[in-house]
């Protein structure tokens, strides 16, 4: 009861050609058991062909307080998008 079983984040690749995608988390004593549990908890209906489990404690995340500093600057850089540039219709699809 007192010891907390480590938390793992689970990533599943639905099929080849797609990236592994975060689908949830679970508790397990070690990586092997985490994989086994991930298979039971998150792939009961053929949701995946490959599983990654990552100790949650090993993930470095951006601080939500830094959200503006990190992501706001891109908002006014519309020249990074193709629609910023005007190309005459006659040129055709580009």
């Amino acid at each position: 009861m007192t010891t907390q079983t480590p938390l793992w984040e689970v990533f599943i690749r639905p099929r080849n050609g797609l990236a592994h995608r975060h689908c949830g988390s679970l508790h397990a004593a070690d990586a092997e058991m985490a994989l086994q549990a991930a298979r039971d908890v998150y792939t009961r209906r053929g949701e995946g062909t490959s599983i990654w489990v990552v100790p949650s404690a090993e993930i470095t995340a951006s601080d939500p307080k830094d959200k503006d500093a990190l992501f706001e600057p891109t908002a006014d850089k519309i020249y990074r998008h193709p629609t910023f540039y005007e190309i005459p219709d006659e040129v055709g699809h580009m």
Partner: peptide
């Protein structure tokens, strides 16, 4: 499985499974 998804969701709010 549903219980486990839900416990995980609750844990994101700062309560432990234990």
């Amino acid at each position: 499985g549903h219980g486990l998804y839900l416990y995980s969701a609750a844990e994101t709010l700062g309560v432990s499974r234990e």
